[in-house]
Computed example of a mutant assay.
Amino acid sequence: MAPKVFTIGHSNHLFSTFLELIQEHDINLVADVRTNPYSKHSPHFNKKPLQKSLEESLIKYVYLGKNMGGKPRDKKFYHNHELIYHRLEKDEKYQEALNELIKLTEKNQIVIMCSEEDPKSCHRHHLIGQSLLKKGFEISHIRGHGDTDKVEMDFQARLV
């Protein structure tokens, strides 16, 4: 059976709603993959308050956004100001973070967290989810209404 990983966008949820969504799937570790782990509109999702609230709920927190974030600073990952996912996927630091994430799945039920509710507009679908699919993982997005969407390999990702 393929190892399973969930993803979620915190959106503008209350922390209690977010917690319910992840607890429904027995999540015990949140992997934050935001380049900048802060939210103007939902400050309870800023790195420190989020980490504290999760730990109080007996859920571990790990920050991987420095090397897995969808807004890297290095211009080599962009073309006409658009992130080219396969360029970032081949980066050594991204691969190190991906391997760390995979290692964490061995003993944890993980949710990869970013800010966008819709995974189709987020790098957790177009980049991280695709990287994990290539390694044999089953990926499901937890949507804001509580349902899950199973992730399929993107056509573009198959070409890389």
Rank of each mutant, 00 (worst) to 15 (best):
D74L: 10
A97K: 02
L21C: 03
F155Q: 09
D91K: 12
F137L: 06
L54G: 00
I27N: 00
E55Y: 06
K76E: 10
Q156N: 12
I59F: 08
N108S: 08
D118K: 14
Q51W: 02
V151N: 00
T7F: 11
E116L: 05
L21E: 04
H81T: 15
V5Y: 07
T148R: 08
V5R: 01
Q95V: 14
S121F: 13
K135E: 14
R34F: 08
Q95P: 04
G65E: 00
R124C: 02
K71G: 08
F45H: 00
N12G: 07
L88W: 11
L29A: 04
D147T: 12
N99F: 07
V151F: 13
A157D: 00
N108I: 11
D147Q: 13
T148V: 14
H13Q: 14
K52P: 02
L104C: 06
E152N: 10
S53Y: 02
I142E: 00
H86W: 11
I84V: 15
Y94W: 13
P49Q: 06
S42H: 07
T148H: 02
L88S: 03
H44T: 05
K134F: 08
K135F: 12
N67T: 13
G146P: 01
N108V: 08
L19V: 07
H13C: 06
H81K: 15
P3A: 11
Y61D: 02
G136C: 11
H44G: 01
C114S: 06
G129H: 04
H141A: 09
P37Q: 04
L58P: 00
G65R: 06
K60C: 05
V5P: 03
V151M: 14
Q130A: 03
L83E: 03
K76Q: 15
F15V: 03
Q130C: 04
P3H: 14
E20L: 09
S131N: 09
H81D: 12
D147R: 08
K60E: 12
T105P: 04
P119Y: 11
I110P: 02
K71N: 15
L132C: 10
H123V: 06
K90H: 12
V30Y: 01
I102V: 14
S115M: 10
H41R: 13
K75W: 08
S53G: 00
P43E: 02
G144K: 14
E82M: 14
H125S: 07
L64D: 00
K135M: 13
E152M: 09
E152Y: 09
F77R: 01
K66M: 12
N46G: 01
S53E: 11
H86I: 10
A31R: 01
I128S: 01
P37N: 04
Y61W: 13
K60T: 05
K107L: 07
G69Q: 04
H25W: 11
S121T: 12
M153G: 02
A97R: 01
A97T: 01
V160P: 00
I8F: 08
L127I: 09
N108L: 06
H41V: 07
K47N: 01
C114H: 01
K120H: 13
H123P: 01
L64C: 04
K75Q: 14
D74P: 03
I112H: 05
I84N: 07
L104T: 06
K75H: 12
H10S: 02
G9T: 02
L21W: 05
Q109E: 13
E92G: 01
G136M: 11
C114Q: 02
